[in-house]
């Protein structure tokens, strides 16, 4: 059965997403890595839905809706920051750092 391998693949993809968030400084690339993590979780949902009932696939549907909303608002925030600072490097965006 493919349940175990699918959970392994989604664990690897999630870890890669976390690595991307930790390693990169470009806000938009970090945002893409967050999308990668969401997709890894979707893979877990689909893999478990195969053996635990279709509710998992319904949840993937909701995750996609939330991801679309998050992408729209997040990219609007990134645009606003870029207009303000002329950079997307998170080292230079330190307004809340004190």
């Amino acid at each position: 059965m493919l349940l175990g391998p699918a959970l392994l693949v989604s664990a690897v993809l999630f870890a890669l997403g976390v690595a991307g968030v930790l390693l990169r400084r470009n806000a938009i690339v970090i945002f893409m890595c967050v999308e990668l993590m969401l997709n890894a979780v979707n893979l877990t949902f689909v893999a478990l839905a195969q053996r635990l009932g279709v509710a998992g696939q319904v949840f993937v549907f909701f995750v996609m809706a939330v991801a679309a909303a998050e992408a729209a608002v997040g990219l609007a925030i990134i645009l606003a920051i870029y207009r303000h600072r002329q950079t997307l490097n998170l080292q230079n965006i330190n307004l809340l750092k004190g």
């Binding site: 959970l7 392994l8 664990a11 690897v12 999630f14 870890a15 976390v18 690595a19």
Partner: peptide, 16 residues
């Protein structure tokens, strides 16, 4: 970063 992500990946991978 690589160490933290590796630890997380290992922990999640055990779930399989």
């Amino acid at each position: 970063g690589v160490a933290l992500a590796g630890v997380l990946g290992f922990q999640l991978g055990v779930l399989r």
